[in-house]
């Protein structure tokens, strides 16, 4: 059997932007021909700035939205070809943790109902056993059974994120999409949640897609990394190769941008040409060329494809040619 759990092939999703009159509406290429695979038990870190399509990829992998084109295989199964019931069965194996622990929990439900809900939906709740299961889940994420009867507003941000994680684990999934799970949390709480995610992965053999915009967090958790820009993958490879030998100027600028908490580290930054990109009007040629300090004539004309640099490192940049 293959050691690949999740595979995306040429995954594409367009959105119609809102706008009035209709001629002002644009087609946004949120995800544009993205391919990657995630091995069992590993973490793929997906990084990029806001609006680059990271979350859309996460939702496509779980089929929370339908693709415009492309395929996703889960354990070898093409998930977009599955019927409702088959999909429902598969959902047990794939879960998501959201960024905002404040809005992702129903304020009118108690913690035990929030965590127990997926068990009910999937008909896995056996009386008596359900309560034990919920307590076990609470313990697993560092909460205790006393918390079961309380409501979300009684918890801090970090605790709510723990509840979100317990809920995601209720069905014993094999694959979890973590969509910026710590970006609204404080430093000390963020460390607690990152450690928890790491421990859970080890103990339960989970596979993660970890979505983030902060490269230092991605470095802490990921085995492999994919860097996205305007709906496309610019560079991907083992965490080692991406952090030691970044090749794409966009990856380098992201790495340079991280402020290092050490006053003795003096750095020269690769400063980008322009501000944020326009999502509805992706440029011709390389999507990154208007901001790229190293852009050449060729970059304006011709879009670079992802090319193999070595067996575990690919980049889409003419400079790597």
């Amino acid at each position: 059997m293959s050691d690949i759990l999740v595979e995306a092939k040429n995954l594409t999703r367009h959105f119609q932007s809102s706008g009035f009159p209709a001629r002002k509406r644009a087609l946004i290429h949120a995800v544009d021909g993205v391919s990657f695979s995630i091995k069992k038990g590993e973490t793929l870190g997906l990084v990029g700035e806001s609006g680059c399509g990271k979350s859309t990829v996460g939702r496509l992998l779980l089929r929370l939205i339908e693709p415009t084109a492309g395929e996703v295989y889960f354990n070898g199964q093409a998930i977009y070809e599955l019927g409702r019931q088959e999909m429902q069965l598969l959902r047990r194996e794939m879960q998501i943790i959201f960024q905002d622990p404040f809005s992702s929990l129903n304020p009118r439900m108690t913690i035990k109902d929030i965590i127990g809900e997926p068990l009910d939906i999937h008909g896995l709740a056996v009386k008596g056993n359900k309560k034990a299961k919920i307590f076990e889940l609470l313990e697993m994420v560092g909460l205790s059974s006393e918390h079961a009867g309380r409501y979300p507003h009684e918890f801090s941000g970090g605790q709510r994120q723990r509840i979100g994680i317990a809920r995601a684990l209720a069905l014993r999934p094999r694959f979890i999409v973590a969509d910026e799970p710590v970006s609204s949390l404080d430093v000390s709480i963020r460390a607690q949640i990152l450690n928890l995610l790491k421990d859970l992965q080890k103990n339960l053999g989970l596979t993660y897609l970890f979505i983030a915009h902060d490269l230092s967090i991605v470095k802490y958790l990921s085995d492999r990394v994919a860097v996205m820009y305007l709906g496309k993958i610019m560079e991907t490879g083992s965490a080692n190769s991406i952090f030691q030998r970044p090749c794409h100027p966009y990856t380098r600028s992201l790495l340079d941008a991280v402020a290092i908490p050490d006053p003795d580290v003096q750095r020269k930054r690769l400063i980008l040409n322009e501000d944020e990109p326009n999502l509805s009007r992706p440029p011709f040629g390389c999507p990154f060329h208007p901001r790229c300090p190293q852009a050449m004539e060729r970059c304006r004309r011709e879009e670079p494809l992802l090319m193999e640099l070595d067996s575990e490192h690919q980049a889409a940049c003419h400079l790597a040619d």
């Binding site: 970090g158 460390a191 230092s216 967090i217 470095k219 790495l255 290092i260």
Partner: peptide
């Protein structure tokens, strides 16, 4: 505790320091 709880891009960290509890 805070300084050791920050994931670092300039070094490999096996584990972050846990500052237990909340504010």
């Amino acid at each position: 505790g805070l300084l050791n709880a920050i994931p670092r891009i300039d070094r490999d960290m096996d584990r972050l320091d846990n500052v237990y509890g909340a504010v």
